[in-house]
Structures are given as C-alpha cells and as structure tokens.
Design a binder for these strands. Structure first.
Lengths: 217, 217
DNA sequence: TAAATAAGCAAACGATTGCTTGGTTATTTC
DNA sequence: GAAATAACCAAGCAATCGTTTGCTTATTTA
C-alpha cells in the first residue's frame, strides 16, 4: 500500500455536510440556501466548508451524485427481486423511485428538483447522471407489451413526470409509495385483450372525433 | 367621472416589467433573478421598479396571478368549443394547458415552476390560485367514464404532473402540444372493450390483490 | 396657466452573499 | 518524540442583494 487510497482519516464530516445540504436544498431551494445556513447546521464556521468542497456549486453536484447513486441502487435492488413480468417490473421500479423521493432522505429529492440548466458549468454532468438513471425506465418501458403504435418515450416521460410531481401533493398516511405505484401503473396499463379486440376502440390518430369509451351496453 | 378609475395614464410600463420578470424567472429562477436584472431588461433603474411593485415577492405574485389568469382563460376557451365527450374535453384542456406551458409566453411556466412554500407570506394566495385553476381538471376527471374503483384524484395528479414536466424534455419540431395531449390521453384511456374480455390479461402486480379494472357491466 | 400627479432618476443604505487567507489544533506517521 | 498533515477556526474581503429616500420631469387636470 503505502501509496494507496487516502481513506478518510479520523472523523470525516464530509457526509454530515452533504446530509445537511441535501435537506436544506430541498427545504429552501439551492439559491436560497446560504453557505452560512449549511455551516450553522453542521456546527462549523462558514469558511470551513471550503476545506471539503471547492464551491457551493461543487457541493450541489456532490449531493446530486449521491442522490443519483442512492435512487439507482434502490431501483436496481427492487428489480432484482421483481420477477419477469414487464408490468410488475415497472411497478416495482416506480415503487422504489417513489419511496426514495417521498422518504426521509432528501438526496433523491434534490436530483428531481435540480434544474441542470441552472448550473451551466456542471450542466452536462448533471444531465448525464440523470440520463443514466432514467435509462432504467427506458428499458422497462421498451419491454412492455403495448399496442404497436404506442410512443414509449412519451409513456416513460409521462410516468416520470407524474412520479416527480408527487412531492408537491403527497401526504403521508393518506397514501403510500407502494400504493401510488400500483395506481400509477394501473392507470397506464392497457389490458391487452386477446385477438386485438382493443384496437377497435382506439382513437383516430389525428385528434378528431375519437371513438367513445363507453358507448354500448 | 372625477372620482373614477385611475385608468393607466400615459405609457404604463407595468406590463413590460411583468413580461420581463416572467421571462427571467423562467430562465434563471426567481432567486437567481435580481431586481437589477429586471430593471436593466426594462431600461429602467433598479429603484424605479418600486414605484410599480412593493417588493420582489410582490412582483412574483403579480406574475403568478397573470399566469393563472391566462392559462385559465385558454383552457376555458378550449372547453367551450370541445363538445360533450368527456375524453375529448379532457384532451382539449390538456392541449390548451400544454400550448400555454410550451409556448412563447412565460407566464404559465412561472405558475408551474413556482413553489408556493418558497413564499411563506404569499403561500396561501399562490396555492389558492393554483387550486382554482386545477379545479377544472378535477371536474373533467370526475366526468370520465371509468371503472368504479378508479382513484380519480391520482389520475388527475398523474396527468398534471406529466404535463408540468414537459418543459424539461419538450423539443419544438419533434412534438406539438396537440400531439402530446393526444398521446397523453391515449395512454390513460382504457378501451372499454365489450364484455370484459380484458380481465384475462390482468396480473396481480405487487403481491396485493389488485381489483380488476373492468369487471362489471 | 397653475396645481396635481404619474413616472422615473440618482444615489446610496445596510445586509447578505460566496469565498479567501493565515493561523491553530489535534491526530498520524515515521 | 519530531515531522507531517487532516480538519478546522477567526477574520475579513469584495461583490451583490433588496430596498429607501429625495429629487426631477413630463403630463394632466382644473
């Protein structure tokens, strides 16, 4: 070894700083969180943060990276135990995603809330990280049995948009991540009835009078 | 008259300030937009803004109100011409919502992007305005012919979340608001095929017994 | 034409911002 | 036990922030 890893010597408060930052970024937003706010919550002086991070932007990138790591791990773990059915797998991924987003940790929430375009220097990094994570949903949606003309990209983006909006309205007790994931998938899933019966009710693509949903009976 | 309306005398640059503010709030975010930025873009001096608005927060509230007004009018107008079919009506509302959100004007975008909790003083005002607007979607979703156990609140919140996420990924030319609205609705609409043939393909998603979508009639 | 007022300028206030710099302490390593 | 270094303190810098205050100008109204 000798010239091996630096390996956190002694108590390293880097993690504490990250925890506090994630929480405050979610509570007040990045721009409205001052480095002094973070320092105070960690029990340090403002300048001491710069021993661990080069800049405030750098601190956000670190929180973002940790958030992507955590939510990715969570989804991957859920998928390993999810079996083979494509809809069940997608639902499991959504449940893991929502659990991270609505849970006590703030890291995933930062990933969702942060607009990469607000950080022109790190924009590519942030977009790349998020894309790598969301690739999981691309694959999951590609595996779904869907009518041939379905736009799977739009389906995926709908689902991601719906999930990432939950922090705005979610109330603990009234719902659960698992329950929401189930309802989300239930609302998107098309019952693939045998023998293409479903196409009968499909709409005319160009937006004009669409076949009615319940017309008979 | 004598004691009648104040009635904008001469050129009133209030509207210009609002336009500029809406644009910059969307571009850089509220906290990262300084009053000096806004003043410069209007050709005024920083202090002059305070002749028209009492504070920066006040300015945001004004933009927000204008945004709610515009998107509400747009949706209402679309609904007047939309006929009676519940799905067609919902799709028309979505198209109007998306057109405002993805169009050139920034007002609606501010409404979507602004987190009321970031403005504790005006939080109730902002939430109230947004709720009044979104009530339109509550009514539209209530009118849908859906399986009895469907959670219409979740359906509505899914749709709103999906729509409000579009500014993140929308690219002009590749999609249109109308096209997206159609795909969104298409993905949510369940083809009510005759005689419940669909149940065959239903699966129990997460180990919980999921009530089937289409069971009766 | 005189008084009133709408609209904005000019200049600065105090507070807060992200960050730097030089020194200090405690722990390791040799 | 000496040298090195990880981790932080103490103090402050320059820039920017939202906002205020007093004054000027141009347009209305009477």
């Amino acid at each position: 070894m000798t010239a091996l890893a630096p390996k956190a010597r002694r108590n390293n408060r880097r993690e504490l700083i990250l925890d506090v930052s994630a929480q405050q970024f979610v509570e007040k937003g990045f721009a409205s969180t001052s480095t002094r706010d973070i320092a105070k919550a960690t029990g340090m002086l403002p300048g001491s943060l710069y021993y661990h991070f080069a800049s405030k932007d750098d601190l956000l990138v670190a929180v973002f990276e940790e958030g992507v790591q955590r939510i990715s791990d969570s989804v991957d773990t859920a998928l390993e135990a999810a079996g083979a059915d494509p809809w069940v797998r997608l639902q499991a991924a959504c449940e893991a995603h929502l659990a991270m987003l609505l849970g006590t940790s703030s890291y995933a929430h930062v990933v969702i809330r942060t607009l990469p375009s607000d950080f022109s220097d790190a924009e590519k990094t942030l977009v790349g990280l998020r894309r790598q994570y969301e690739a999981r949903f691309t694959r999951l949606c590609d595996a779904l049995p869907l009518p041939p003309q379905t736009d799977r990209s739009v389906l995926r983006l709908m689902l991601i948009g719906a999930m990432n909006h939950t922090p705005v309205w979610y109330r603990e007790g009234r719902d659960t991540p698992a329950g929401l994931a189930r309802k989300f998938i239930e609302n998107l899933r098309v019952p693939l009835v045998g023998a293409g019966a479903s196409e009968a009710a499909r709409t005319d693509a160009s937006g004009e009078p669409v076949s009615r949903r319940i017309e008979d009976e």
